[in-house]
Design a protein around this nucleic acid. Structure first.
Lengths: 338, 338
DNA sequence: GTGAAAGCGCTAACAT
DNA sequence: ATGTTAGCGCTTTCAC
């Protein structure tokens, strides 16, 4: 027997319906729902009661339209599969708690153009968009910023509110850790070559040069675990393979780890691996991945605060908040054994 | 030196601005942007050109309001920190690709009321809300469903479109696997006691009863890793502790694993652990967690399809799609050694 | 304390 | 092919 039809969705109730039910004007209903002064207690109660009966829910979209200012804050997250973005999300939410602003989310999609999914946020007229992480060129971001204020998370963009971590310092710390252990054949597994993704790469190259070594960079097609695994399967098998890999993020690093173990290599015996993000996976016993913590949660909270400020003071100078990351050494790194 | 002020956000351009610029009526601009027939090619080009120059972006919110039907599909994800929801998200997106419908996301928050965060989706007037996973009582969900069609993911709700996995079968398979290995002291680490979260618990109890054993249920305060770790630290230390734990999800299971290892127990030597979701973490070498795969990606895709159908046929009977989960046996389970 | 009227940016008949 | 007009659900002066 097929289940019952869903409770049907007739036209949702409007303020007009409530007003008619109570026998007052629409204005009063509007006032009542915004706790505006000038509604007698008895009328207010009657209105709420009728609203409950009718299942009335305010239409925030129509309200914003009429009010001519957006109450929504857009939050763009590049990759839901990467836990870092969940941390950023939590931080943002925390900063926004009690501010009375709705958050509307958008997330990156596999095959889309860089930052394409930010579009819906501006078309939905978010008052400000917190973006973690933008991947299109600065010029394009600035163009976007002309339509809606942008708060860039984890990437510095001149002229746009930016809340980020010092990637150069983090990457340099990671490479120097490896260098200090005695490694010389260190591969950097970079993320796709998009704008705002280069700091770690550059810091790696510079640290290698400073040590008198030649950089060996391999670019992964995406930031995912799978992509790290597949890419590493290639360069690990080569003769004269690396004794250490510094990956752009933990996902890639875990992929490298998987590929290495599949080839019969041991970690850190045959291969040292360093990631970036210090995510949950890195911290599990048995994984113990050395990684760089960029304090994603705090980054999110700072971004949330910046967004609120931008909403209130549209023409203040852009904030530029850089925080220091921290290298967390675990058991995935050791001196090379040859 | 402080950075430059952000490019400022004057009033965003509207169709009226574009129309004025080109010297045509607003209607034509509206038509042009919706690729409606009846606009000469030259006018259309002029319109697009002017729009580009002015930085015009359509206001999807105003469009929906005028059109009197929502083009947005709401997607509620209970916990961004749980990778399963990212899989569901990906599946939904896939199913919706090319349907021309925007997706607006909302995610659960730590301290909020059950399903509270679905509210913004209905207030933003989503045409249908895909909810993964609802935690409030059926009655409350049905009330919600009176305001907007709901597609419930991973939980069956009578009278509401439901796309879910057979939790009873999955849980029973997990417990019987443990039973088959010879375990008798099996603890079930359950999620918080909310509606729609009981199937696994009940199946566990029934499987234990069928085996002539008495169930030992411990309820975790949340679904998180931390909560699993803290809770397990308690019951593992007890004398007469379990030889196996079946957790409500992988996060909890990984927390149990961590607590066990911290106590010096070995897995699966001293303790067998089974999770649920078959997430990335479970599959890592060195973790090798036995788990139940509920095919989150497919669940998401099916939910997306159901949402589209519901949008087109508002009064069709509710769909009720149940799929079979699969137990994936890995190295975290073995016969008890005493 | 309450209501009438205008308008937010857009779509959708209905003209022309 | 192009323009006019009337709303969508709401907020917001400004009267009463």
């Amino acid at each position: 027997m097929p289940p019952l039809p869903p409770s049907g969705s007739p036209r949702p109730a409007t303020q007009a319906d409530v007003a008619r039910e109570v026998g007052v004007s629409r204005t009063l209903v509007s006032f009542a729902f915004r706790n505006a002064p000038g509604v007698s207690e008895v009328t207010r109660q009657a209105i709420f009661e009728a609203a409950r009966r009718l299942g009335y829910r305010p239409n925030s979209v129509a309200a914003d339209l009429a009010r001519k200012r957006a109450s929504a804050i857009g939050l763009y997250l590049l990759d839901l599969h990467n836990e870092v973005y969940a941390d950023i999300f939590t931080g943002v939410r925390e900063a926004l708690a009690g501010s009375g602003s709705r958050v509307i989310l958008a997330a990156g999609r596999a095959g889309s153009e860089p930052d394409e999914e930010v579009g819906p946020l501006v078309e939905a007229r978010a008052g400000v968009v917190i973006a973690a992480t933008l991947t299109s060129p600065d010029a394009h971001v600035l163009e976007l910023a002309g339509m809606v204020p942008i708060v860039s998370v984890a990437r510095r963009i001149e002229g746009v509110d930016s809340v980020y971590s010092d990637d150069a310092a983090g990457a340099r710390a990671a490479v120097e850790h490896l260098l200090g252990l005695g490694h010389t054949r260190i591969v950097h597994l970079a993320g796709p070559g998009v704008d705002g993704n280069l700091e770690r790469l550059i810091a790696y190259e510079s640290a290698m040069h400073d040590a008198g070594l030649s950089p060996r960079v391999v670019v992964a097609p995406s930031h995912s675990f799978e992509s790290g695994e597949a890419t590493a399967a290639g360069f690990l098998a080569a003769s004269d393979g690396p004794t250490a890999v510094f990956a752009h993020n933990d996902q890639l690093a875990l992929g490298v780890r998987e590929a290495a173990l599949a080839l019969g290599l041991t970690i850190p015996g045959d291969l040292s691996v360093v990631g970036y993000d210090d995510s949950r996976g890195a911290r599990l016993r048995g994984i113990d991945l050395t990684s760089v913590d960029l304090h994603a949660h705090q980054l999110g909270a700072a971004a949330g605060a910046a967004a609120l400020a931008r909403l209130r003071f549209p023409s203040e100078p852009a904030v530029d908040e850089c925080s220091a990351p921290r290298l967390v050494v675990r058991a995935s790194t050791a001196p090379p054994h040859d």
